[in-house]
């Protein structure tokens, strides 16, 4: 193995991730090459120095307290999430109800005042028949009120009136 190749592999030689064959090859090279040997020493010193760097240690009691704090944060988050879900659901329901009532009141407002629900077309047919057959001066009520009167009647009543008038 030449110096360039060793330089590329040295880091992995130090961290112990090379295969045994490669390790042996590098070991052989280091015995013969002072430059690579010096490079190897620098790398080892640097890695050892890094490994020796201390960080604060916390004991079991500390971690117990930290665990309790973490759990209380988890619970808080859980409560908050549940509250948000409930609020979302409630606002959805309120929205739907509001839409329902608004649309209902709109429909109510757009209906004619005395509109009475009947099978579609019956009153129109009855009105047209009456209007076309009888001249306006023979009508028992003014033409303007005829629609309202007809609307209040049942289909059977229309037929009775028609029969009476046409007799």
């Amino acid at each position: 193995m030449n110096c360039d190749r060793v330089k590329q592999k040295l880091v992995f030689y130090v961290d112990g991730s090379l295969s045994e064959t490669e390790r042996n090859e590098i070991s052989q090279h280091l015995k013969q090459c002072d430059t690579c040997e010096a490079d190897y020493r620098t790398t080892v010193e640097m890695v050892e120095s890094a490994r020796k760097m201390k960080i604060p240690e916390h004991d079991d009691m500390f971690w117990n307290v930290h665990y309790q704090m973490t759990m209380s944060r988890i619970e808080q988050k859980h409560h908050r999430r549940t509250l948000i879900k409930t609020l979302k659901l409630a606002s959805g329901v309120i929205g739907v109800l509001l839409l329902f009532f608004v649309s209902r009141s709109y429909i109510e407002k757009s209906k004619p005042e005395n509109f009475v629900s009947m099978p579609v077309g019956i009153s129109d047919v009855a009105y047209n028949i009456l209007y076309n057959i009888l001249p306006s001066d023979k009508l028992p009520i003014p033409v303007e009120q005829l629609q309202n009167v007809v609307d209040l009647l049942e289909p059977e009543d229309h037929m009775i009136i028609l029969t009476e008038l046409l007799r």
């Binding site: 960080i55 604060p56 916390h58 971690w63 930290h66 665990y67 973490t70 759990m71």
Partner: peptide
């Protein structure tokens, strides 16, 4: 929570060191 506590006590110090670095 028991399982979580075990996991916490086992890994928290290790993860702390990693985060601290």
């Amino acid at each position: 929570s028991k399982e979580f506590e075990q996991l916490y006590k086992r890994y928290a110090p290790m993860l702390y060191r990693t985060a601290y670095r």
